[in-house]
Write a protein that binds this DNA or RNA. Structure first.
Lengths: 209, 209
DNA sequence: TAGATTGTTAATCGATTAACAATC
DNA sequence: TAGATTGTTAATCGATTAACAATC
């Protein structure tokens, strides 16, 4: 992945949101300090890996006492660019798109659902999560008006690629794809996948039939 | 991960569902044969990796012609144990649980939502996706009655661990966790995570602020 | 046969871990 | 000070890739 900051392994970047999640939880628990060992135990990984990962970005701890949770939390939020809110578009407002638009988990973690689009004329104008569903023809206007650079695709699989092309064309650079298909995008555009059935299949491999 | 079939790297197992997904798509497209090169191009990985991954499980191709799509599809379905249907439980029937229960993507890939549970007395008896929401007190009965070994957790984060404990106790061995918290489970129990906000944060790292 | 593609080996590359000096 | 924990180095481990003989 990635051409910016090429010196940081992508796999390390992928763990930062997990660290952030654990730190948020510790803040909720009113804890003030933690250590790589405590984090490691909670996350089921090694303390050495946590220290090594963080060392790519700076020195955030103190020998003997560990990490100030609020401080490390702030630093990682900044590193991940989620110390300000990203307006995001959702394309495809079927059952899944509804759920994505209404999902409570985005707000506290740096994202706001800011525009909804669907190809079905029947759905245009419907209110979902407090927003009107717009026609795809409004995509360019609205994405540019709001400066949207992050989008989620919740269309059927056979429309996901054309939607992705459209999004890229109007300036979107990060796509979270809920459709069960691998997307092709130009360099400088990032794609991540949500595929619950794939995760389930990964686990059934280990179960007795 | 995993104690059964320890000789297969878990990262390889994790790619099989992706291969399966691509093969399903090719079947829909009425293609009959494919090659490691074609698959690689579609999936954005190397053809050597695909051949190496498959070689852990057997020989599925023919020199010169590649892979019979339907055959390879069947073989991987068998390897992943999704050549029969797994009844699954969903715990936590809020907005997210509703969406999970109604998700269309499970059926064709080896899973059937077979039981719904919630702790809120208000929700008990409500029909969701054609199933009644049951009280947590019914969990043991119902999971055992149906032989459920796969479950999805869609509760708030602070209840996910106790729900996981309960599920493990009644025989569940694979848990797909939608709550943004890392779960601790005994050996022989498998957990995968769905965290859309984490994926978005992974990508915003690469975007200009 | 000639061309294509597999399965596999060996080399390369990269990630994880263990260990420890530094230091709070 | 004594104990604890960091950040970092070097060693280990494992995954990916390149190359090719085998063969359809």
């Amino acid at each position: 992945m990635g051409s910016r900051r090429p010196e940081i392994p992508d796999i390390v970047v992928g763990r930062l949101p997990i660290y952030l999640r654990a730190l948020s939880r510790m803040i909720q628990e009113d804890k003030e300090f933690t250590s790589s060992h405590e984090l490691a135990e909670r996350l089921g990984i090694s303390s050495a890996q946590i220290r090594k990962d963080l060392s790519h970005f700076g020195e955030f701890g103190k020998q003997g006492t560990g990490y100030n949770i609020a401080y490390l939390h702030d630093q990682i939020r900044h590193i991940l660019r989620v110390d300000h809110e990203w307006p995001t578009a959702v394309v495809g407002i079927g059952d899944l798109g509804h759920a994505v638009a209404n999902y409570r988990g985005f707000q506290a973690r740096g994202f706001r659902v800011a525009a909804l689009f669907d190809a079905d004329p029947e759905k245009i104008g419907e209110q979902v999560a407090g927003l009107p569903v717009l026609a795809i023809s409004r995509l360019q206007d609205e994405v540019q008006r709001q400066g949207i650079r992050v989008a989620m695709i919740a269309t059927p699989a056979d429309q996901a690629q054309v939607v992705a092309n459209l999004l890229v064309q109007v300036g979107v650079r990060a796509i979270l794809n809920y459709a069960p298909i691998t997307l092709t995008v130009p360099p400088g555009v990032y794609v991540q996948y949500i595929d619950p059935a794939a995760h389930l299949q990964h686990m059934t491999f280990y179960l007795d039939p």
